[in-house]
Design a protein around this nucleic acid. Structure first.
Lengths: 353, 353
DNA sequence: CATTTTTTGATTTACGTACATCAAAAAAGC
DNA sequence: GCTTTTTTGATGTACGTAAATCAAAAAATG
């Protein structure tokens, strides 16, 4: 049986109250007595029962997730993951979701301020790269509210942590796969992005470009198509490029709007291009299954959400999280290792946990 | 604030005792009263505070993990993950590890019987495919002990669950990557396995063969090399094949002993083969980094361990686990998306849950 | 040595649930 | 209506920790 506070009190020859004072860093304990207690803790291998401690404290952590509105399937999956975690009821944590217009710095900054006013203990937000947002984040931190960026970072703010993938590495991974899949095949490659004003997209592009310039004898990367993560625009842009560059060898889609990409390729009679996209969502999953998409790079929204919660709670408790354990992996999916879709959230899931 | 049992008692107009009887399915409650309580539970959205419940029950779950001995790096990483979970102290769970000689059915069966005698609430074991083991598992289940197979399944037993990847799909994934990486390149491919007597290895082979026979115009798969997961043997076997088949296009290593594979390739002057291996361990990581290995298929040992714990605890509680959430993903790693090694366990880790 | 200050002990209540006991009330059977 | 059975209420203890109070003991100060 695990030792309890009573056991260490008895073993150290002190009272329960003294043990409590040591454990919770309360004043009024002589150094020698403190040492005795700490020795007993060490000797018996005592570890605090966090469940019982939280129960006794009656502490709850109000956390706020700020997520863009709109039909971006990845964001919708992210929100579903948040709500699912909330339903499972992470112990002693109450989570609320706030939606804001995408790419809207003012709205995001306002939402952050509101969350702080409402007494949030921690905030997680998909960052937009703008000075108003940086200021809002730094205001939150000054109020003692923990803050993490989610999916897209804002390194110029003082945010406590970034819960997302290394997007430069993701771009390199895409480039490497593209180069290997194409092999000796000739022809330029196209890049479809949402907007170069978003940090994660620009980072992916730079990683991709670096590998493409490097791999073998170099391969031409055409001017970036910016589809604003909108399927209709994406479809039009891709269709135009397919007509304009008959020798096109591959397409790297590093943002959303992939339903449009797939539609354009279908309409063009499935030209044998190497297609690599991001995020395993219904459109990209369908593309992989039909063979029109070769590989999908993915970040696990569930992992990101749970990592954010752990970090925020740790910060709210004044504990340092183990940063090394909070790194988010870049998943590669091809047709053969597709996980079954999660009926709850529509996102890809692993055993996790 | 979350509603408590007191709230539903008040809301339903009954006593605390009656609510308790309903919640814990104790007898002596009229159907109408039960309905009133259940309505209140629904209305207030009550969810049991599991932490408090477990505290009150004073229940602990003694779980036993049976893992092969030896220098197989994946198994050592698996064991490290188990010990790490134990240190983090999964709430109200005490975990012990038992080592048995690898591929030894009698020893495994004996270890299972011992664990049952010692009063384990659940057992997780890396299965060896043998009738003695099937019988031991079924004996454990008859005693009411929960049982899951880990990494390698034994479907002919009545085990509650298998915590591992779909190895046929893993083989198909390897085959698909191999075919795409090779492209038009000619030549047969070799397969290095541990032993065809182990279920996971034979399943991977069948998936790989299926894709190879299928992809494009078919590619010859040479006779399987069985290296018994031993680096020395593996090195010798691979070296011999490299000499014997100068036109070799690729090698699929579906077992362990990859240190030997890498050494053989280095010794042969790094012939430009497509090499795909399993499990991200120190040797395969080094191979990826040096460029001698093209891709590594991986199963996350941490996920498997935590999944096993969740399933075992659920079974011990008489609750059905959500099987869909317990699927283990087949990870693909190439040089560009290599995660940093976990200093604690030496295995790959993601943010996880 | 008396006094003040600091340290320690003893005890209590609380968190939300489980579980047991005994009495009281309601329903069923005759 | 009376007894018997079933259902419900009231109450207490427990789990392991947090946090508070007040008294007692020890140490420091003069």
């Amino acid at each position: 049986m695990r030792p309890t506070v009573h056991d260490i009190a008895a073993s150290a020859g002190v009272s329960l109250a003294t043990v409590d004072r040591v454990l919770n860093a309360r004043p009024g304990v002589r150094a020698v007595t403190r040492a005795k207690v700490e020795a007993a803790i060490e000797r018996l291998g005592y570890v605090r029962d966090v469940a019982a401690a939280n129960l006794a404290k009656g502490r709850i952590y109000p956390l706020v997730f700020i997520i863009p509105q709109g039909e971006n399937p990845f964001m919708r999956g992210l929100e579903a993951e948040v709500r699912q975690v909330d339903r499972v009821t992470f112990d002693r944590t109450s989570i609320s979701v706030v939606n804001v217009p995408p790419f809207d710095a003012m709205a995001l900054a306002a939402a952050i301020d509101t969350a702080v006013e409402d007494g949030a203990a921690g905030i997680a937000a998909v960052a937009v790269d703008a000075p108003e947002v940086v200021e809002a984040i730094d205001r939150a931190l000054e109020q003692g509210v923990a803050f993490v960026t989610l999916v897209s970072d804002l390194a110029s703010s003082k945010r406590d942590h970034f819960c997302g993938v290394d997007n430069v590495a993701a771009g390199r991974t895409a480039g490497s796969l593209m180069a290997r899949f194409l092999g000796d095949r000739e022809g330029p490659v196209a890049v479809l992005a949402g907007s170069m004003l978003v940090r994660d997209h620009s980072e992916r592009l730079s990683g991709f470009r670096a590998v493409m310039a490097d791999a073998g004898r170099g391969r031409h990367v055409l001017d970036v198509l910016e589809g604003q993560d909108d399927p209709v625009r994406a479809r039009a842009l891709v269709s135009r490029y397919l007509a304009k560059f008959p020798g096109l060898a591959g397409i790297y889609s590093l943002g959303a709007g992939n339903a449009g990409l797939v539609a354009a390729l279908e309409a063009a009679g499935r030209p044998g291009l190497c297609v690599i996209a991001h995020e395993l969502t219904p459109p990209t999953r369908a593309g992989l299954e039909s063979g029109i998409v070769d590989a999908v790079l993915h970040q696990d929204a569930g992992h990101e959400v749970r990592s954010a919660i752990r970090v925020l709670r740790a910060k709210a408790d004044g504990v340092k999280p183990v940063a090394a354990q909070e790194r988010i992996r870049i998943d590669i999916f091809i047709r053969e290792n597709l996980p079954p879709p999660d009926p709850e959230t529509g996102t890809a899931r692993a055993g996790e946990g």
